[in-house]
Design a protein around this nucleic acid. Structure first.
Length: 798
DNA sequence: TTAGGGTTAG
């Protein structure tokens, strides 16, 4: 900025002014006003002191304001302290300076001292700034009554500040009262009320106030517009937003930065990204909010690459990203998976560092690592955060839960309450219950159910859905049904959960009749409902019914089937041995078949030993998803069953060549609320020898009543006794033996196996259930098997 | 010489 002071041609000070005191003061005043940097302010300060003009209250106050404007709080405070006389304006300026620098307690102390020590009285200017400094309701009310006592509440600036202060502190009723008591309302008063309502989430009331304003014929200014626009998206009232847009263009408000930012935000939140982009493209200058709004808009819409590209644009434009940018970026990276772009941004976040005290940023980064399947990194960030809130805990629990670390998730749930002293909320239960469901931790799940009942959360539809799912997946379909009967049924969630739950237990008929009930009660089925329903039909072998459902889904319910539905249908037809029909369905698919569809066909080919079609399915699978080792295992199993050992070798070397490793099989069993995991062939358990002894004893008894090991499930070409050993070290058998050893006779045993249970283990478990007179429930990656008295509920159809 | 009310969040 131009500064006249140092451009004077003659040596300072010009003699003419030196002898003219009044001119001198005015001249100093003007120079102080136009002074742009601290470097220029300091000599001026010195000159004021030397020339004795600092005693002039007008000039010392101006100097104080200059320091405040330039951001030098210590110098401003010093100037204030040394000023020999202080007018009400000096005090007002000092209070404003503290507020400007965010030192609210100091501002209030200053105000207090003003009242106690100064002979000057506050004026109407004192109050707006003091009201701004109130950080809690007590102070606010105290200052309010003082303003009243001084007779200033009728000043429109003071009362508008009160309205704003009360809404800022969440006391919207007080705000409304202050607003209604105003004898005269100017534009600013209406704006204060409007923004107050908006920020307290009272969108409908804000719309009412806005309508009132329109009826009174009050014009909108840029502040009105920026206050009203944020409620258009939550009210789902894009029409209002568009009308305001037209108004702004007509009245020339659309070139304002704040207004444009608010439009970008509104359009982005209503899912109208093209409109947001149009506003963005038309902007002459942009600030941090502009970039944050458009980036978060694309991120929320899942258009990650656009969001990341815009982030590059932001860096190029020289605008420094802030915590909000980081939050959006972290979510974008989380969505895009671990590709190269993701890594670049991730690196940027790491390099730039972040404040671990910032809960928002910390939570976003924990979430990001969780979604990138880096639970350990998520934990590290979590541990580094000195302050955690309930969302931080929920995020970490979800991250464990979704990465298969169910025990860790349950542990965190426990220590959240014991160590963190934080009570679980809806989201907590919704993240820990799927973990219980995943490993079959029934006792833990029941404990959480108890907590939900005590806190009233069990009637929450999300929690109830998770509970139904948990009971079903922990082998308690009756319990799940019982719970389902108690929850509100307006939402599809509980219906989908119970239909799927009955489906995996092979209760296809019950699932189908529940589906009819659902329609009778007027609940609209969605895509998920049909996935649950079709898979229920598939597990129960209800081929014709499944086909009808698939048709009705399109004709009656107007839902177009996605990959998952086709996969269910292929599974349904394939299991029933109708491989040709399954293949024909794939051939007529309007969309490209995904790996789920071909995987279902391959699985069916394995069951029915159709090597040729299996080869065809695998060739597609290796093209689509070459990294998934499961398909190589399926194909090699198929060859092994057919005795084609050359084929086995070929598939194995292919997998080796692609550096794929077989997913280790594991099974878990819950004993005394503790889940123990066994890996196939694993010998690390402290009671391994005992377990082997138990298994040997069982094997002898089993053989005596007719058990014959089926070596076709041993996929290695080895000697017979070696084969027997391989079969008896399958993880499900270790878990079953451990369960029998560690529980009292008659206790049901519940096993979870991460892969599909092997055919020989299935047969062996039937014998074990007979010998030990135990109910054994095995849940594998596909369905449930209830073994009782030598029989299995699936009727060997799986 | 000093004043109120505006956009983005896990």
């Amino acid at each position: 900025m131009h500064n006249g002071f140092f451009k004077l041609p003659s040596p300072f000070p010009p003699p003419r002014l030196l002898y003219h005191a009044a001119h001198m003061v005015v001249d100093f005043g003007l120079r102080l006003l136009s002074c742009a940097t601290l470097r220029l302010a300091r000599p001026l300060h010195a000159l004021l002191l030397v020339s004795g003009r600092f005693d002039n209250v007008f000039l010392s106050t101006k100097l104080l304001n200059l320091y405040s404007r330039l951001g030098d709080l210590p110098s401003a405070a010093l100037t204030f302290r040394h000023a020999p006389t202080k007018s009400v304006i000096t005090w007002n300026s000092m209070i404003a300076c503290y507020v400007h620098h965010g030192l609210l307690p100091d501002a209030l102390t200053c105000f207090h001292r003003f009242l106690l020590t100064s002979s000057a009285r506050p004026d109407p200017f004192t109050f707006p700034v003091t009201i701004k400094a109130c950080w809690d309701l007590d102070w606010g009310k105290r200052i309010h009554s003082l303003a009243f006592r001084f007779g200033f509440v009728w000043n429109v600036f003071v009362s508008a500040s009160l309205v704003h202060m009360y809404s800022r502190l969440g006391s919207i009723d007080d705000a409304r009262k202050a607003f209604e008591e105003m004898p005269y309302k100017d534009q600013g008063s209406w704006n204060a009320m409007l923004s107050g309502l908006c920020q307290n989430g009272k969108a409908a009331e804000a719309a009412e106030v806005f309508k009132e304003m329109m009826i009174l014929g009050l014009p909108m200014d840029k502040v009105t517009v920026s206050s009203v626009l944020p409620v258009c998206a939550p009210l789902d009232n894009l029409l209002l937003g568009a009308a305001i847009h037209v108004y702004c263009i007509k009245h020339g408000l659309d070139s304002d930065l704040f207004v444009s930012n608010a439009f970008i935000d509104m359009y982005a939140k209503s899912g109208r990204l093209e409109e947001a982009q149009k506003v963005f493209d038309g902007m002459a200058d942009m600030d941090l909010v502009t970039w944050n709004s458009i980036i978060s808009g694309y991120e929320q819409a899942g258009e990650v690459s656009s969001a990341l590209k815009l982030f590059d644009g932001m860096k190029e434009s020289g605008v420094r990203p802030d915590r909000l940018t980081i939050v959006s970026l972290a979510s974008a990276v989380a969505q895009c998976g671990d590709d190269r772009t993701g890594r670049t941004v991730h690196g940027y976040i790491l390099r730039r560092g972040w404040d671990s005290r910032d809960i928002f940023v910390g939570n976003a980064i924990v979430d990001m690592y969780g979604k990138l399947s880096k639970a350990e990194a998520a934990r590290e960030v979590f541990d580094r955060m000195p302050v955690k809130d309930v969302i931080t805990w929920n995020t970490l629990i979800t991250s464990y839960s979704q990465n298969g670390l169910a025990n860790e998730a349950i542990e965190m749930y426990e220590s959240m309450q014991s160590r963190g002293g934080i009570a679980p909320i809806q989201g907590t239960l919704a993240s820990v219950l799927p973990a219980c469901a995943h490993v079959g931790a029934l006792q833990q799940g029941m404990k959480i159910h108890g907590r939900a009942v005590r806190t009233g959360l069990q009637s929450d539809v999300f929690v109830a859905t998770c509970l139904i799912d948990m009971y079903a997946k922990c082998g308690r379909p009756e319990e799940a049904t019982h719970l389902f009967e108690q929850v509100p049924r307006r939402h599809t969630g509980p219906w989908n959960a119970i239909i799927a739950g009955l489906g995996v237990h092979g209760h296809g008929q019950r699932a189908v009749s529940l589906f009819s009930e659902m329609q009778e009660e007027g609940v609209k089925p969605d895509q998920v409902t049909f996935v649950s329903l079709l898979s229920a039909c598939s597990h129960a072998g209800l081929v014709d019914h499944g086909r009808r459902c698939f048709e009705q889904m399109q004709t009656v319910h107007g839902l177009s089937p996605c990959g998952k539905h086709y996969a269910c249908m292929v599974d349904l037809l394939g299991r029933a041995g109708r491989l040709d029909a399954a293949y024909e369905l794939i051939a007529t698919m309007p969309v490209k078949p995904d790996s789920g569809v071909w995987g279902a066909l391959l699985g069916a080919c394995r069951i029915h030993g159709n090597v040729e079609l299996g080869k065809l399915a695998s060739s597609h699978l290796f093209e689509i998803d070459a990294e998934n080792v499961g398909y190589y295992v399926l194909l090699s199993n198929m060859y092994a069953k057919a005795g084609e050992w050359d084929g086995v070798d070929e598939v194995r070397s292919l997998a080796r060549h692609r550096r794929l490793q077989k997913t280790p099989g594991w099974s878990s069993v819950e004993v005394n609320k503790k889940v123990t995991v066994f890996f196939t062939g694993g010998q690390s358990h402290p009671r391994y020898e005992e377990i082997q002894g138990e298994l040997r004893a069982l094997l002898a008894k089993m053989k005596s009543i007719g058990y014959v090991p089926d070596y076709s499930f041993v996929l290695q070409d080895v000697e017979e006794d070696e084969k027997e050993h391989i079969l008896s070290s399958h993880s499900e058998r270790l878990a079953i033996a451990f369960g029998i050893m560690s529980t009292s006779p008659g206790t049901p045993i519940r096993i979870y196996k991460n892969l599909r249970v092997c055919g020989d283990c299935h047969n062996a478990t039937k014998f074990i259930s007979k010998i030990t007179a135990r109910e054994i429930v095995v849940r594998d990656s596909n369905r449930f098997h209830h073994f009782r008295d030598g029989e299995c509920s699936c009727g060997d159809y799986w």
